[in-house]
Write a protein that binds this DNA or RNA. Structure first.
Lengths: 231, 231
DNA sequence: TCATCGTATGGTACGTCGTACGAGTCAATC
DNA sequence: GATTGACTCGTACGACGTACCATACGATGA
């Protein structure tokens, strides 16, 4: 039922306060947090298809159906795992810097890095409702751009453009990562048919490996375009 | 086996030449093309999870395992369906226009439109090897940018930037489309927590519905940034 | 002290999936 | 008439998400 989840959450909080220090048992009890953490581990190691409720229960030393006390269903679990991976700790220094561009670049590179640390996360993000961590990131981004002088009327477009760029870049990068073994196969396949695509070949589009650098450079171009109009 | 597929392909070609005009039977025989076409229909109607080999066979009036004569496996089928949807017919007029920017915009909007016509396609594209139709599109895009004066050294970044932008925009748009019923639920959820995200709310980031306009405007900004440096 | 109740666990079972295997049909060839 | 290759498909297997239900246990109220 719907009551299940919230019930579990509130009960746990009370429990921990009532029995503060006790059993350091070998197998800690199930909890929403433990489930999510382990799910992320599993996703990192095995990929999206590698996460199954049975495997997850195995790893937790529990029965499969016990998971459903703490989690609505597998979709719900994906939402939780995804948001748990998107926390943002903020820019290195707290100063209200006048370097808005540096701040934006830092935020977006951190966002990208967070997703690449968990390659399953990028492709999951667009098709789910935005969790609190993602909303915070977007709010901070909006605020920075706004402070930088982007008009309210352009803010919408600016943010979506950056979102699109980061998501596209990261999803693509994460996907190419997965197919690592067929990398050489793809390369020689490409060289085989490359006379049909001479410009692609000349630009070394599919052979370049400097993903980070390309990301940064392209982001620079986009920010150039988004910058408050130069006289 | 590996021989299966290529064998099937060559055999069919020969067959059709040997018995040119004959049975307009009620149930046409299976063929790779018919399978792919029907798979696309199914995907359009039911989404990615809606495509199962059994449903596909049902719709084709065949046994499930017959499909595997023409198609290696479900992954293979996805590749074929995806590329079949990405054909490009070229710009409206054949002229070698000097309006490179208009050409690029046309190509990218057509690309986006093709994917949105089949909302399952966008999120599939980044994680698979590029098929011939996608490679053609990229080659044409490269050529146009190159003709427009983008240096070979920048071509790589330029194309990836556009790719990222289009993919991010389209994947996001297509995903929002799927969750149509919970649209209003999401909206009121957002309004409920929007005091925590005032800038997001002010920009109407998640409430705006003019996807096409936002796409076009943002693309304009990106092209501004990518344009061969102004004097 | 005992009954009740909410929290939590997990075994069994159902329906669905992709696809391996191998038996079958049928037309063309020798 | 036997053989061969292209093609079809029924059966079966192991894996999946999860509904349903029995169970256990600590806290509460009588």
């Amino acid at each position: 039922m719907a009551a299940k989840r919230s019930g579990a959450r509130s009960k746990r909080g009370i429990n921990e306060r009532l029995q503060p220090v006790q059993e350091p048992r070998s197998e800690p009890p199930l909890s929403r947090e433990r489930i999510v953490t382990t799910a992320v581990e599993l996703l990192d190691v095995q990929g999206v298809d590698g996460l199954t409720m049975r495997r997850l229960a195995d790893r937790l030393g529990s029965g499969v159906m016990s998971l459903y006390w703490h989690v609505d269903n597998k979709e719900d679990l994906f939402d939780l795992a995804l948001d748990s991976v998107l926390e943002y700790r903020g820019p290195p220094q707290m100063v209200e810097s006048r370097n808005w561009r540096g701040e934006v670049v830092h935020m977006l590179e951190d966002w990208r890095a967070s997703m690449l640390r968990h390659p399953w996360s990028a492709s999951l993000l667009p098709r789910r409702a935005l969790g609190p961590n993602m909303l915070s990131r977007l709010e901070l981004l909006s605020k920075t751009l706004s402070r930088a002088g982007v008009a309210d009327a352009d803010l919408n477009v600016a943010i979506w453009s950056l979102w699109n760029y980061v998501m596209g870049a990261t999803i693509t990068r994460a996907s190419f990562d997965l197919s690592d073994d067929d990398r050489s196969a793809a390369q020689q396949h490409l060289t085989r048919v490359s006379e049909r695509y001479p410009t692609i070949e000349r630009s070394r589009l599919l052979l370049d490996n400097d993903w980070g650098g390309t990301f940064r450079k392209g982001l620079g171009f986009l920010l150039d375009g988004l910058s408050p109009r130069r006289g």
